[in-house]
Design a protein around this nucleic acid. Sequence first.
DNA 1: GCTCCACCTTGCCCCAAGGGCGGGGTCAAC
DNA 2: GTTGACCCCGCCCTTGGGGCAAGGTGGAGC
Lengths: 266, 266
Amino acid sequence: MASPTISVKSTGVTIGQAAAFAGVTVKTVRHYHQHGLLNEPQRDSSGYRRYGSADLLRLVQVRTLASSGVPLAEVGALLDADAEQFTAALADVERRLTERIADLIARRDTLRQLADGDRLLLPGRALAILDRLTDLGFDPVYVASQREGLVLARALAPKFFDIFLTQLEHRLDDPQFVALTKRGWDARSWPPDDPRIDELASDLADNLLANREHLTLPTDYRPRSDDATRYGLINHHLEDHAPAWTRLNALVETKLRAAGVPIPYQ
Amino acid sequence: MASPTISVKSTGVTIGQAAAFAGVTVKTVRHYHQHGLLNEPQRDSSGYRRYGSADLLRLVQVRTLASSGVPLAEVGALLDADAEQFTAALADVERRLTERIADLIARRDTLRQLADGDRLLLPGRALAILDRLTDLGFDPVYVASQREGLVLARALAPKFFDIFLTQLEHRLDDPQFVALTKRGWDARSWPPDDPRIDELASDLADNLLANREHLTLPTDYRPRSDDATRYGLINHHLEDHAPAWTRLNALVETKLRAAGVPIPYQ
DNA sequence: GCTCCACCTTGCCCCAAGGGCGGGGTCAAC
DNA sequence: GTTGACCCCGCCCTTGGGGCAAGGTGGAGC
């Protein structure tokens, strides 16, 4: 009747029509059947599903909740719940959606900080140090390897990363240290038993020991069992490239250890 | 060496240590290997993977991009790209992230509008009509069936939903129509061949034809091929529940059609 | 030497919400 | 009678890993 009263037509519509009415694909409707959100409607003589108005009503309800972000697994229980449970469950769904949104926003913010390709993966203070190395006349290859070292340091020892940067800043303020480091870079092509390596190692150790701010540790530092592993990985990164460095490192470490410098600065 | 220079340790760390350093699970690292984001490192004599600092560097880079929301499928190409491509690709990733965020926020907003459980799935104007039905003394069961009819109407014929509501508002302003509708509700228990049904059908048709605003159509209305199907489903929803309604509907439809009323109001 | 425990290896199946494809049956129109 | 649009079912694919199984290894304590 044309009044507000309502009632069912016998045959019903096919799955494609039902899907089009609800604004979804046929596949989606079958998916809802498989997961028990929608009862299978009657089938006609050739096995086609035939949807009546009650089936469509349910489909529309399921779709409304699903497209509002309610997980399918919860839609069924939600539609069968009373008003109180319904409201509480919706609030919970909304809370989870808000969490996901906040997470994605945080990721996007992180992403923005990486947007300068050449300066990938490092914060501004570290980038300033790399720029300074370039200004001091270091080989671009050396600067690139330093960038790798900083990326590694940041990931492996985030707690000490700032201290690590502070040390580097102090060291680069010292012209003698800068000169020795440049000589260390030249040493990559020396044979491992070159006597100049012994001399350079002594000079480096003397410089570090004479300038305690080059070796500053936080006052509350307590060595952890894997600190040595972590610092070892950072310090020895790229040692492959030059056998001379392996020896230079070993010599400097021995001298510092003899002077009582704690583990992370071996 | 303790200077900024960097170099490699021979043995390397196990997968568990590498994962812990990068803040991920062992499974995740193996996952990255499987998808070619990370080369397989050297194996030791017992087949364990051994990660050197270069491997860790790569792992850290992959992880940084992945946890910023870059799809894994793009991380590899991104890390091998030059600065220009890198920047462009990151901007694209950021755009997609922003899209997803907007989508989730829209879902959450929709969700909020559903938050009153008893009034599920309908806008305020439709809810006002339902409240009015209650105030007019309609049976709660009738009101509930009307709610279902409105949900269905909204989904099946969104373009006409507002017009549908306007019609209902007009009809409820007419005390005679209200009285006839209540009598129609009582008719659910009559036998289908009850002569009172013929009488009621005549009265309903006369009322509708005498009040053209009860049947208002948009002036630019052009029937579409599936309009009849859609309106049929809405009008006949629940006809199952009372055989008398089937006959009442059919009689009213015939009378209206005879008077030249177009399809959606049959 | 023995055992325990934590760690490593590979391989297979699982999640959410469907998409795509393939082989086959059906309906309506031309 | 044939074409095109629709329907059926079932299998594999997606993202970013998680869980579990069955078996090998390494170091510590007894």
